[in-house]
Design a protein around this nucleic acid. Structure first.
Lengths: 165, 165
DNA sequence: TCTACTTGCTTCGAGTTCGAAGCATAGCTA
DNA sequence: TAGCTATGCTTCGAACTCGAAGCAAGTAGA
């Protein structure tokens, strides 16, 4: 006799609830700050950040969608808005005519530079004020492997993972 | 001379990014399961769960909105859907004529009972498979205080917190 | 190289979210 | 108790999200 495969015990339940609440509250606070500071949403901010962190300042649409855990159609929409605002440039990918490569513009970099300090302040206050440096390290050590596991594992047993459209 | 008040160091950044990714990936997996198992969204599931966990099976709208970190207008919308589906009942609060109390119905309880095993399985697989029991305890111990801090603290220095509408 | 399958992105429609504004009830202060 | 402010919820419009379907370009096998 073995245990049911993936029952959730009370401790796990507490961790799960706390995780959901913390991420929702954090996201809400972040959205407020970004909106006041630069008229950005969190999704758009994440796109700009990912582009900015890239050495080339660019990413393919699909890679970006996976990175920020967003549907491809939703990313198309957001890319359109960012392009219209002059914050990114869209161009067909060089090696694959189907692909679209997004590149952050100077205006995009400037906007990120403008909102980033306030963003860090919110994250610092909301998430890290109650955590010591060692706590932050522990949190990263716990969640890093979880993220890798989630990215690797097929979400439902057996069946193939459907990619988002 | 003191440090900048809330700069984010690389370790914190890693924890922050992992937290955002983990919660997004988890939410996506949960949404899939709930939809397949019972035509529910995560928001509706959270509402039903909160009601079910209450001794009375009821909650006021505002309390519910705060609990699940949702706008009041959004909750009104969802409550309407749940009521139409016969999963909750809406009634004016007894002690405050303005208030609305949501109560889970038997059909609501039945639906929760039906989708909960699969839900726990997804959470167990996605979130807790890479974590030992001690890890889960550590995660809860880290995130619990963070949640309490977020719920207590005014999000922006000085200014009064605007409540969601 | 023709055909069939895959992949990358966009378009589309339906559903969901939010904040602002509106309305009704409560509560407080003079 | 009259009037002011605060609170609880809903309505409304605009914005955003998703999956399905569609189209174009790559890829692999005969």
């Amino acid at each position: 006799m073995t245990e049911p495969p993936h029952a959730v015990d009370p401790v796990q339940l507490g961790a799960y609830f706390a995780l959901v609440e913390v991420s929702d509250l954090l996201r809400y606070a972040i959205e407020q700050q970004l909106r006041e500071a630069g008229g950005l949403t969190f999704v758009r901010f994440q796109i700009l950040m990912r582009l900015r962190l890239s050495p080339t300042g660019s990413h393919r649409m699909t890679d970006l969608a996976d990175a920020i855990v967003h549907s491809r159609s939703g990313l198309t929409y957001q890319a359109g808005l960012l392009e219209k605002a002059g914050l990114v440039a869209r161009a067909p990918s060089v090696d694959d005519e189907r692909g679209v490569t997004l590149t952050i513009t100077e205006a995009g970099r400037a906007l990120v530079a403008r909102v980033l300090p306030g963003h860090e302040e919110v994250v610092g206050q909301m998430l890290f004020e109650p955590l010591s440096r060692a706590d932050a390290q522990r949190l990263a050590d716990l969640l890093g492997p979880v993220r890798d596991h989630m990215r690797a594992a097929p979400p439902r047993s057996g069946r193939a993972r459907r990619r988002r459209t």
